[in-house]
Nucleic acid binder design. Structure first.
Lengths: 341, 341
DNA sequence: TTGTAGGCGTTATCAG
DNA sequence: CTGATAACGCCTACAA
């Protein structure tokens, strides 16, 4: 039952030709006659031979594999990105190998090592929250490995990257809230050593400044990304003397938490309190009121990252050239902030 | 800058010993002295040598890789499963290579082939909706490859599989609806050549029969899995002469569609119409009213599938033994169906 | 305990 | 156009 794996040598023997000829026939090499090529292909079909890519990859010094490291694969944004990467790479004959860092620095270090030992042709990654610098990545870069960062990038490294304009996404959202007549806008932030959260906060602060609105310290909450933290923070600020009339969160999850608590405390959304989140998680359009948020097209980001990957390994560009792509975010205005109509 | 890759031969030359000794030192082979082992390890650290797993895998005839094929990676259930697989396999030194079938039979065939050519040690997969039989999988099984199915399994094949008890999940949900006093329960189904949808429907029908409730043909809607289809179907049945007082859907997405339409048409949930879905998508607890649904723990399913994978390749069992694991679903009762309190 | 030799399955190079 | 040969980097008998 369990057949031994056939090799090109078996095919060669059967056809009384050499293994190299079989190899050439299979690789559509030009220096071979139509006749033998067809003979070989027929024999391959007949016998059920399947090439061993491990061997061919070893010989070619190339694995036709992209390593992907994400904090967690089951976060919609990241799985969307992976989907986009896969969509672009598969037609090019590349395969992807996945690792999760689980936001841990140590896991990230190990994943980098594992993928390197597998001789992947490059790594597409988004950094773990725990990784406060990029020394572990530098080691590989110095050895000539390719790393492409997306979303959470290593800004202290000269590296190819794909991000969205988080600053702009935040700025536009705050501008929108102001235009809706909100005057005291609270902000939920994330760990600020991560570029995306730093940028979102900067967008928030700049928008307030541009419109001459003061920043109230008690309304800027740090490290507030989960639903629970959002509920907690909301209760706190709504009970304070200096109540906000809107909440802009760096995360859809804490925005949902805010929504729950605001309703519990008897305020109306968007009449009394406006709410906006960030990321356009699928649930944001399903809750009621539906949540205003910023879309960061994960699938597209994955596609772009994959293209950058292909460019960098097919070296149309010279070695030192790094691509830095910044995608445009889209503000999606929904019920939770829309009181003008 | 770009160092050439070092090999065990380079280390050997530096230490004036043979490559095999280096290999043995690195693999913690017993037939080697402490002294040389330490020397080798020191040299490796100093030089920055990194083993080439392509080569060692080729030599060992084993790739320490699991191939995973899912319909779409960015569906929460599937990405949860992948997370669970990764969690279990990584500590065992296995890596995972991912393919999406995008529900297409052809993509599935190609993925199977790609993964085989990569000589993965086994494949963990959930079948594409388009795949109506498993002949393409049989080909590989006959060649002695390992395939483990999860969720959507190939029932005509003697194969290891991990599923949840979809029948029971559906049965319990319908029983719950009946106990809440609902008497005319509509059902949204999926493609019935897929085991999970067939089983859910069977659970629905059996529960009705057990409680002596007739089945109304106009209330059983086939191929109704998306939000849009759910909206459409709901409009249809609520306008009919034979209106339901509850809707049980095989999918959370169509259940949400039902919810939207029911509210639009002015009915109260759960007072006038009860609703329940299936899968416990993250949004189900965030919508209002929150949606009653059946939890199928994707992460756990992934963990179990990975363990079955490890068992099957580390062959503690004999070749012909196939594990068939059935996990228990959990009915999660939320507001959308709970009118007793 | 260590070294030698051979091979895992391919492909690139060089002859013919 | 085709064949022989030698790698790719590693591991494992077998020999010493």
């Amino acid at each position: 039952m369990k057949k031994q794996n056939l090799t090109i040598h078996d095919i060669a023997r059967e056809l009384k030709i050499s293994a190299s000829t079989v190899s050439r026939a299979l690789n559509n090499n030009s220096r071979i006659s139509e006749a033998t090529r067809n003979e070989v292909k027929a024999a391959v079909l007949r016998s059920g031979y399947q090439p061993n890519n491990l061997a061919s990859n070893l010989r070619k010094g190339k694995s036709y594999t992209a390593g992907v490291i994400v904090p967690r694969i089951n976060r919609v944004f990241f799985s969307n990105v992976i989907g986009g990467i896969e969509e672009v790479l598969t037609p090019h004959g590349y395969t992807i190998t996945i690792c999760q860092s689980m936001e841990s620095y140590l896991n990230e270090v190990n994943s980098l090592k594992t993928l390197n030992n597998l001789r992947v042709d490059g790594i597409i990654m988004s950094m773990a929250a725990e990784s406060k610098n990029a020394m572990h990545m530098k080691t590989w870069l110095d050895q000539g490995r390719k790393i492409i960062c997306f979303d959470r990038t290593a800004e202290d490294l000269d590296i190819s990257s794909v991000r969205i304009n988080d600053f702009k996404g935040a700025y536009q959202t705050v501008k929108h809230l102001i235009e809706q007549g909100y005057k005291k806008i609270a902000f939920f932030s994330g760990p600020e050593h991560i570029n995306v959260y730093r940028d979102r906060k900067a967008g928030y602060l700049t928008a307030l400044a541009d419109y001459g609105i003061p920043v109230y310290e008690n309304l800027v909450i740090s490290n507030c990304l989960s639903k629970e933290k959002g509920m907690e923070a909301t209760r706190l600020i709504l009970k304070s003397d200096n109540k906000p009339d809107a909440i802009f969160s760096s995360s859809d999850f804490s925005a949902i938490g805010a929504m729950v608590t605001v309703k519990e405390m008897g305020f109306k959304i968007p009449r009394d309190i406006g709410i906006a989140g960030f990321a356009n998680e699928p649930f944001t359009e399903l809750v009621s009121p539906s949540l205003t948020t910023v879309d960061q097209d994960g699938v597209e980001m994955g596609r772009v990252a994959a293209k950058v990957f292909l460019n960098s390994i097919e070296t149309k560009f010279d070695h030192t050239w790094k691509e830095k792509v910044v995608l445009e975010p889209t503000l999606i205005i929904r019920e939770s902030s829309n009181r003008k109509f």
